[in-house]
Every structure is written in C-alpha cells, then in structure tokens.
Design a protein around this nucleic acid. Structure first.
Lengths: 221, 221
DNA sequence: GCATATTTGTCCGTATGTATA
DNA sequence: CTATACATACGGACAAATATG
C-alpha cells in the first residue's frame, strides 16, 4: 500500500520526474498542459503546480506565455555541471571518514555496474554510475549538498537522453570508479583526488565529444 | 508601467520571496492560502503555484493537507548549511582567477559593510556580508553552484530572523572579509583558505551560540 | 472520543491575453 | 493580417483532511 493515499500534490511531481529521468519524454519537448493533465489523470491546475516544482529543480524550463519544455542541456550546461561536480565531489572525498555507510553503497554500485556490464546492459551501467557518484557526495553528510548534487545529476540524465548511450560512454568508468573507491577506503586522499580528477576530465571530454558529433550529424540548433 | 506586463506567474513568487527574506513573515509561521491570496491580490491557484516554487528552493515547507510554513532552520540545519559552505566556498576560492569581476563585487561589499557599520546599521552590515559571500562563490563561474549557494544563503536569512541581529554577530566579520579578499587578490590561496576556515568556524559558532541562548530563554520548541 | 468549523486538495468553466500558422 | 491554439488567470464548487471545541 505504501503511499496509495498520497495526494496528487506530491504524487504528480514524482511521476513527472520519473518520466523525465527515464527519457519517456525527450529533452526539448514541449509539454502541453491539457494533454499531459489528461494523460496523468489530473487537472491542469495540479499539473501546473508540479511544473513549478520541476522547473525550480532545473528539469523543466518555463517560458512565460509559451509553455514548459523539457530541459535540454547544451555544451555550456555540461561545462557548468562539471565545474560544480569538481567542487562538490572534491569536497565529499576530502570529508570521507572510515566506515561511512555511503562507502558500502558505493561498493554495491561498483558491483552492480560490473554485473550490468556482464549482461550487456549499458543503460544499467549508467544508472549504477550515477548512483555511485551520488553516494560519494553523501560522504559529506550534508542533505543540502546532496540535494543540490542530485538535481544536477538528474540534469545530466537529460543530457544523456540527447546522445545515444553506447558502451564506450560508460564502460571505462567502471574500473575508474572501483579504483577511486579503493583509494578512499585506504584513506589515501591524495590518490583519490587524483583519480576523481581523472574521472571527471575523461567523462566530461567524452560527453562533449558525443555532443559535437551529434551536432555535426543532425545539424546545429 | 515598467513590468506591468509581467505575468503573476513570475511576479507573485518574487514578491513572496521578498516577504520572506525581509522578515515580513516570521520563520515557522503558517501561510494561509485564502488570506495571503487576498493580500497579494491574486487567486488561490496562482498562489499555490508560487508556493511550490519557494518550497523547492527550501524557503517554504509544505506539509500535505496541513499547509505551507515559513522555513525555520534549527541547529541541525545550521550545521548542514556550514558543511555545504565549507565545500562550496573552498572550491570557489581555489578557482579564483586574477581580474575576475566578482572580486570587484566583493570589494564593494566590504566598503558597503564598513559604511553601514559607521551608520550603526547592523542589518545593512548583514546584507553586505551575505552579498560578499555570494560574490565569492561567483568566482567559480558556475551558475548552478551559485544558484545552490544563493538559496542556501536565503535560508540563512531565515535563521537570522529567529535571533536578534545584534552587533557582535556581524561586526567581527567585516575585517575578516577584508583580509580574506586581500589574500585572494594577492593570489595567496593557502592564506585565503585559512582565513575562510577561520571565518566559517567563528561564524558558525556565533550563530549556534545565539540559538542556544534563544532556546534557554524562550524554552525549547 | 465526537461533532463541528476551517482549511487544504482537486477540479471545472470561462474569459483574456499571447504566440504561432 | 486573420485565425487558431494554447497558456494565463480567476472564481466557484465540492470532497477530504485537519484542527477546534
């Protein structure tokens, strides 16, 4: 039963968020109030409230008098997101304390990613990778910092939604993540920070490259 | 008419935000939909949309079926906010580049704070102090990081709203801020980081102390 | 514990303004 | 430029939940 009695006021935003991060609606797509409200079985007013929540999280863009659109992060957004990641994740690694529960979560994500790789499930690898880094930020023990990072990573998903999730985009990071975790567990912060930097640089470069290829293929704009 | 064409969709949240950070409504206070909508000259539906925006920013707390309340940060929130500040502001200082426009903004805030002190305007000192630190984060050149930090600082204002703004709570930081800025301008990152740490520790301690005194005076809860 | 009053949650109808074909 | 579609904004209505006595 869990939250079957949950008011739509909280259920609809949640449902919408799932649609966004699962890629059920495409980045850049316009969301019609009338149609979506009908599809979700709710009223336009309730849906508009949900729109405001998601817009404040950066997942939707609100153009006054024109409607709301699914956010479509561009190259500038990617650069910005990685600037934020460098600051936040570096801080998390430096704050890491032995025995922190998030370390176990990270280990499980590494295992989960390896298993998904074995099954050829690259989408699953990407999901585990996201979860790994969110767990890393939890090392800082700050709900607000985690909330900020989580919504940033949700935006990253929208970026991935615009490029095809091929293997090369995720495969190399499984081992990098594992090595980074080992360094943290050993308490070797210097090595961990170096590995984190290497990860962020490679990951950023790979995404920007995929973007550039996409642009040249489908045309600018 | 300036912004008479501004839709309420953007005007009402803005107006509400001003009411919150100016202390026009007290932290913890319940906001009645009916009364507030009438007071703002808008409808309940439009106001509810604004509530969602502010709630996503952390300034309002939404209790389903009970209403929305002005956020009232407690000691745990203060600890969390300072954990976030240590991570974010440290990252900003490390990213600081010579000639960055935010450095000029910081200098203006220091001057403004000194002027406000001369006028005995401690509220003004607090405002300049907030602006100084927000400018510092802009050194990182990340709109998303700045947005995260800005909403965190808005929450800080609500915390200040619960304790009296006496001089000792702001006066010592004018000189600390000035010294920190000088260290950054000299490019002496090590000193700057040490000064930042000193500032954050003293500031956190002062606020927690004020909270403890308030609790013992008015009783817990 | 119960009955009542208040408030939130949810939806509809509609009038108006804005953008786009 | 006209026309159409859609977002904006409002007020009213009722159900559901909560607070009050």
């Amino acid at each position: 039963m869990s939250q079957a009695t949950d008011p739509q006021t909280t259920r609809i935003p949640h449902q919408l968020r799932e649609m966004l991060i699962s890629g059920e609606v495409a980045p850049g797509e316009k969301l019609s109030e009338q149609r979506l409200a009908q599809g979700l079985g709710t009223s336009r007013n309730t849906l508009r409230e949900a729109f405001r929540t998601l817009a404040a999280e950066g997942l939707l863009i609100h153009h006054p008098n024109r409607g709301v659109f699914v956010a479509a992060p561009d190259e500038a957004a990617i650069l910005d997101i990685y600037r934020l990641r460098r600051v936040v994740q570096r801080g998390a690694v430096e704050a890491a304390l032995p025995g922190h529960p998030a370390l176990k979560d990270m280990a499980e994500c590494v295992a989960g990613a390896e298993q998904a790789r074995g099954a050829g499930d690259w989408r699953g690898v990407a999901t585990q990778n996201m979860a790994y880094h969110r767990a890393m930020v939890r090392l800082a023990d700050s709900p607000r910092l985690s909330a900020c990072f989580d919504s940033t990573m949700a935006e990253m998903r929208l970026a991935f939604g615009q490029i095809e999730d091929s293997a090369f985009l995720h495969e190399p990071y499984i081992e990098l993540n594992a090595g980074l975790l080992r360094a943290i567990l050993r308490g070797n912060h210097l090595t961990a920070l170096a590995q984190l930097d290497a990860y962020l640089n490679r990951s950023e470069q790979a995404i920007l490259g995929a973007f550039a290829r996409m642009r040249s293929a489908t045309g600018s704009r």
